[in-house]
Amino acid sequence: MTLVAELPKPAALPGGPNLRQAGRWISSRLAGALPLLLPVAIVVAWQTASSLGLIGNRLMPAPLDVLRAFWDKTISGELGVNIAVSAQRALSGLFVGGSIGFLLGIANGVSSLSHRLTDTTLQMIRTIPNLALIPLVILWFGIGEEAKLFLTSLGVFFPIYLNTLHGVRTVDPQLIEMGRVYGMNGWTLFRKVIFPGALPSIFVGLRFSLGIMWLTLIVAETMAASSGIGHMANSAREFMMTDVVVLALVIYALLGKLADATARFLERRTLQWHPAFQTPAKG
């Protein structure tokens, strides 16, 4: 009993509970901003080095120059048009390649006949780097939209195909048996058991393919295009406009991040049931 009484009281913090609360609020805000810390620090260091003349502006523009290029290109409308063109190419490639990959993945996962018929061929094509097809694609399609669509579709196809196939094949056979016992078959079994079971894997494929989508598109636009972000960067290089070249890189980074964040958002929304996506709030 006396032990407790003899313990020294904790020294009160100056300012009392209000200040401590404020401190906690600030630290929680800081924790939220933590991922931004490194990019901001790099930009600040970069700008400082440029201003001090440590980095030659002809080879690497200062962040403020890039910002100015962004402003000029936005005002002239050039940037908006190019982003729209690139985004449209990317999305149509994702749609075409993704749909084919998804459908073939499902078909080959469900039917062993379809799997035996097509899988070997697809795996052989997969080993060819799709950018190695560029010379052939230019001969076939010239530098028109078809070339870009073909290349991005092909690039997007494989991650979605492989992961959909894997997802369907790894659906718990006990759940499928349960579904059959309870009278499900065909479409119902697919909708209630197989597709939701494969969905986490399909999302992994989608996020992989988003990366490949931008990569393929950038290369295709740099080599053979008359519009788009890649074309903008490439023509800026001819006039030594390094600020525009760097601007294009920044835009690519932002678009890539946006695509990934969208996929994550969809993942979170559709996979609420998954323990990995559950908020522990509910008991």
């Binding site: 006990q174 759940l175 349960m178 016992v181 209630k192 058991v193 939701p196 969905l199 049931w273 998954h274």
Partner: peptide, 12 residues
Amino acid sequence: IVFQEPRLLPWE
């Protein structure tokens, strides 16, 4: 049937 494992659909 009640199986040894519950075999519930995790997404329902």
